[in-house]
Design a protein around this nucleic acid. Structure first.
Length: 735
DNA sequence: GCAGCTCTTATAGAAAGCAT
DNA sequence: ATGCTTTCTATAAGAGCTGC
């Protein structure tokens, strides 16, 4: 088996007794560098580099290659004593001989054959003085390497020195290479005795691949051992017998994974040769996956909503489905790990979202409790459950505990999630869990979900510019979904509170609303578009405007989900805009798999609710003036505040204008500015000015001219990206 | 002085990596 | 699996220059 392994890893080519030219680079380090190591000029002189071809017999054994090559290049034999060699294929990372083959007796012809024209033999020759002196400037890993290469002219050291895990390195270095191969070949005994060394071999192999990918990725990249087993092998703690089948499976995987091209995750015809030089380096990094925001992200989101924790099999199905699209067939196919990572990041993203909001909510609640004796839990909620504590009560308790015992937050959350799952499981039996939350809910329907709107206090004199964080915080008060998994399924926190509209059009929890002067206790405005854009979803202009039109009485999570569905399914949104009184008119919720909001959730706004909206906005500084004026001290550099252009609503608008005329005149720009600022959402956002629009057009021109240049360069990859961008651009225009 | 250009820098957000 | 960090990409904005 060991032999078979070698034959698979290194293509054995029938090269007869020919002479082969080996491209060599010899570096001489004759004298030690100065102690300070800073005399670059001197060092330049001592590092003599020689390049040439050594004509060697194809039958020359690898272990003799360095010695023979030096001899052919007219170096005295004693040089070979402290010479080490590595093989570099093209400009990839150089590999020591031991990483190429276990069998140092393999011939050069067998090993390299037709690849020879792509190969460089790099030889480092140290004088004995230099080698000892060099150690002073070497990294510990280099020292380990050097300590093992002294006097070894065949260069067969284990270059695992640049592994991140030097701990493993030291262990691995002591292991006999090829032992397993010999044993397996010789058919030595079975059982434990037979597997002890194979495990060590596995460890070395794992260490080799760890050089290319992080340990946690091995398993997800198909390594047949579990993560725990891998960890145990690496740490030398695995002493169980390993079946032959398992070892075979591992080597099958390893041979592919550790192949020269290391593009195992891509089909051969999709290998990007330009990326090859980076492989096999510990700095290798997976190319960033760009999901198509129009075709792929909505799908992923939909799947996430169905199940935030799909099994591997499910993800494989998703992968196949996504890769079947034209977008992927014409481009780089997705990898399994990309899907996996997306789900992982999505879970993290929404957990953070919920947590940050919950904490902000909790703090503000506490502030309010301090300032008011009026903190009462909504009675309608208190009696909402005939099954014990309402979700809200449970949640509130939990929130308090979190405040007191921050370190226990994770356990609490875990418990909550488990509770959630239990509740969800049981909810089918008892659909009505909190009647007061959704009194109008149809029997069997899922409990109410309500978007809990938070509004940042807008105080007089506060510069609204830079208050983009107003939209950063999103709270979703979600009763546990029963039928349709929630957008925030896994992280739903049933912090259910009815909202009230107070002056300035802000929304506050009704329990905080005393009728008039609670605006200052109002919380953050959540931007539904933020949720969508967080997933890269482009809402239709109507829907985006609807989302902007927050605060919206009665606009619930249900509506948002419904709206998202409509986006995904290309239906017309079920939300229509009615700017009468600057309010969004949400159609009376129709019976749906979800629910209708409770009466308390759908309070009608007070007359002053829209006063703020109807008022002319405060004079606001332009983003530029803001960024340039906020600096009170010249020494203190104020971070540039990036003006945010809404990607779902405003960018398509700009793009469509750009398509009409990429160089609008001043009047046109002013018109665009007015139009952009007239949107409902912009009322509470930093306003456009001519400069912003002008800069956008400027950058757009630069972008598209750059794309044209790239396209003319006939770089296939760039061309493809250009086409993708153009297609997306066209889609944006059409939408 | 203004507009436009190219190049550069800074920022936000997301994908990937890694330790636990 | 999770939480946190790092790295990367896209792009808004700035700097410096040129031409009119």
């Amino acid at each position: 088996m060991g032999k078979a392994f070698i034959e698979i890893v290194i293509p054995i080519l029938a090269v007869g007794g020919k002479m082969l030219p080996v491209h060599c680079i010899v570096e001489l380090l004759d004298t030690p560098p100065g102690k300070d190591g800073g005399d670059a000029k001197k060092r330049e002189e001592v590092e003599k580099r020689k390049e040439g071809y050594a004509i060697v017999p194809s039958t020359l054994q690898l272990r003799d290659l360095v010695r023979v090559a030096l001899s052919k290049l007219d170096y005295p034999p004693e040089r070979a004593k402290n010479a080490t060699g590595v093989i570099q294929v093209r400009n990839w990372k150089a590999l020591p001989f031991a990483s190429i083959t276990d069998n140092q007796q393999s011939s050069v012809g067998q090993l390299f054959g037709d690849l020879l024209s792509h190969i460089t033999l790099k030889i480092s020759v140290l004088s004995s003085d230099a080698s000892s002196a060099n150690c002073q400037n070497q990294t510990p890993e280099d020292q380990i390497r050097s300590s093992r290469v002294g006097g070894n002219a065949n260069g067969s050291f284990l270059s695992l020195g640049n592994l991140g895990n030097s701990f493993f390195l030291r262990r691995g270095l002591d292991l006999p290479f090829g032992m397993m191969a010999r044993r397996m070949k010789g058919g030595e005994g079975k059982g434990v005795g037979r597997t002890a060394h194979p495990v060590q071999e596995l460890r070395i192999k794992l260490l080799q691949v760890l050089e290319k990918r992080g340990p946690t990725l091995l398993v997800s990249h198909g390594c047949p051992f579990s993560q725990v087993t891998v960890a145990q092998i690496l740490q030398g703690k695995y002493n169980k017998p390993v079946s032959i089948e398992k070892i075979q499976a591992f080597y099958q995987w390893y041979n592919i994974y550790n192949g020269l091209t290391d593009n195992t995750l891509l089909p051969p015809d999709r290998v990007d040769s330009s990326a090859l030089p980076r492989i096999s380096s510990k700095h290798w990094r997976r190319p960033r996956t760009l999901f198509n925001p129009r075709t792929e992200l909505p799908r992923l989101l939909r799947w996430y909503r169905q199940n935030p924790r799909p099994t591997r099999a499910e993800m494989e199905v998703y992968l196949a489905e996504l890769n079947a699209s034209d977008f992927r067939r014409n481009g780089t196919p997705l990898q399994y790990s990309s899907i996996m990572i997306w789900f992982k990041n999505a879970r993290v993203k929404y957990r953070h979202l919920l947590r940050s909001t919950a904490i902000a909510q909790m703090r503000e609640d506490m502030v309010y409790a301090k300032n008011s004796k009026d903190l009462v839990i909504d009675e309608s909620m208190k009696d909402s459950s005939d099954e014990g504590e309402s979700d809200m009560v449970v949640e509130e308790k939990e929130m308090e505990e979190q405040e007191e015992e921050g370190e226990e937050e994770q356990e609490e959350e875990q418990e909550e999630e488990e509770k959630t799952e239990l509740l969800e499981a049981s909810s089918s039996k008892s659909p009505v869990r909190s009647s007061a939350k959704s009194p109008s809910r149809s029997p069997g329907r899922s409990p109410a979900r309500m978007l809990h709107l938070k509004v940042e206090p807008i105080t007089e004199g506060e510069d609204s510019v830079g208050n983009e964080n107003q939209v950063a915080s999103v709270a979703t008060s979600v009763a546990k979904p029963t039928i349709l998994p929630s957008l925030l399924h896994m992280h739903a926190r049933p912090h259910l509170q009815p909202v009230s509209i107070v002056s300035n059009g802000l929304i506050v929890p009704s329990r905080l609303h005393n009728g008039s002067h609670q605006a200052e206790t109002a919380l953050h405005v959540p931007d539904l578009r933020k949720i969508a854009s967080g997933f890269g979803i482009s809402l239709t202009p109507e829907l985006a405007a609807a989302a902007h039109a927050m605060p919206i009485p009665g606009f619930t999570h249900h509506h948002f989900l419904q709206a998202l569905d409509s986006v995904h399914h290309k239906e017309s949104p079920s939300i229509r805009l009615d700017y009468h009184n600057s309010a969004l008119s949400v159609p009376k919720p129709t019976p749906s798999p979800l629910t209708t909001p409770s009466a308390s959730q759908r309070r009608t706004p007070t007359p002053q609710s829209y006063k703020h909206q109807s008022e002319s906005p405060k004079p606001e500084k332009s983003p530029q003036s803001n960024s340039s004026q906020t600096s009170t001290s010249p020494a203190t550099r104020v971070p540039r505040k990036r003006f945010t252009i809404d990607p779902t609503f405003e960018v398509p608008k700009l793009q469509s204008w750009f398509a009409i005329d990429p160089r609008p005149d001043r009047q046109t720009i002013e018109r665009y500015v007015q139009e952009l600022n007239s949107s409902e959402w912009r009322r509470h956002q930093p306003k456009y000015n001519n400069r912003v629009v002008y800069v956008w057009f400027k950058n757009a021109r630069a972008k598209y001219s750059k794309m044209q240049v790239s396209s003319s360069d006939r770089d296939p990859d760039m061309e493809r990206r250009h086409h993708e961008l153009m297609r997306m651009h066209q889609e944006a225009q059409m939408s």
